[in-house]
């Protein structure tokens, strides 16, 4: 059967629009096509590749970031939908050379292997701590179950989060 050109012309890609986000504390304005996910905006347009793409369908959690302090899947939102919001990625967790307590704990508990899901786990864990709902290890397991780790580092992840939670409780901080 010979190839035959289609009669209808496809719709062209959408024209770029300006989006302004606060990313890891710095205001960034991007000119991007409105169909760009927050995940691709971070990875391709801001070169913040710490946020990972594991499925692009909101099924694995590798792209978890904090938007205004809340954890979300960056692949399930368009960057334009986050206009004006504050986005924290794994690159924004540390304060200069000083790692975030969760980052320290992940290394200490060997809560990672290949490292690919790790940024999403860390952002998710930071979100979990802020939510203040987790009281037990089982709570941590349940509330971290949106973040798949194919290497199976779950026991280390739970131990790392628990250690930070415990320290905060001892220090009298908010949980």
């Amino acid at each position: 059967m010979p190839d035959s050109p289609r009669s209808t012309r496809p719709a062209p890609p959408p024209e770029p629009v300006a989006v302004t986000l606060t990313v890891n504390g710095a205001e960034r304005t991007l000119k991007i096509a409105p169909w760009t996910s927050l995940l691709d905006a971070l990875r391709l347009h801001l070169d913040l590749t710490g946020t990972k793409k594991g499925c692009d369908h909101g099924q694995c959690g590798a792209c978890t970031v904090l938007v205004d302090g809340r954890r979300i899947n960056a692949c399930l939102t368009l960057a334009v939908m986050q206009e004006g919001r504050s986005v924290t990625t794994v690159e924004g967790l540390a304060r200069g050379d000083a790692l975030h307590p969760l980052q320290e704990a992940f290394i200490a508990c060997d809560a990672l292997q290949c490292g690919y899901c790790t940024p999403g786990q860390l952002c998710s864990a930071a979100g979990l701590l802020a939510e203040g709902k987790a009281r037990s290890d089982d709570d941590i397991r349940e509330l971290m179950s949106g973040n798949i780790c194919r290497c199976g580092a779950y026991p280390g992840i739970v131990a790392a989060i628990r250690s930070v939670m415990n320290r905060r409780a001892t220090d009298g901080d908010a949980p």
């Binding site: 913040l48 590749t49 710490g50 946020t51 990625t89 794994v90 690159e91 967790l93 540390a94 790692l99 980052q103 992940f106 290394i107 060997d110 990672l112 490292g115 790790t118 940024p119 860390l122």
Partner: peptide
């Protein structure tokens, strides 16, 4: 893990 820091900072 010696590569831990690179992995937890992205």
């Amino acid at each position: 893990r010696v590569d831990g820091r690179l992995k937890v900072t992205g």
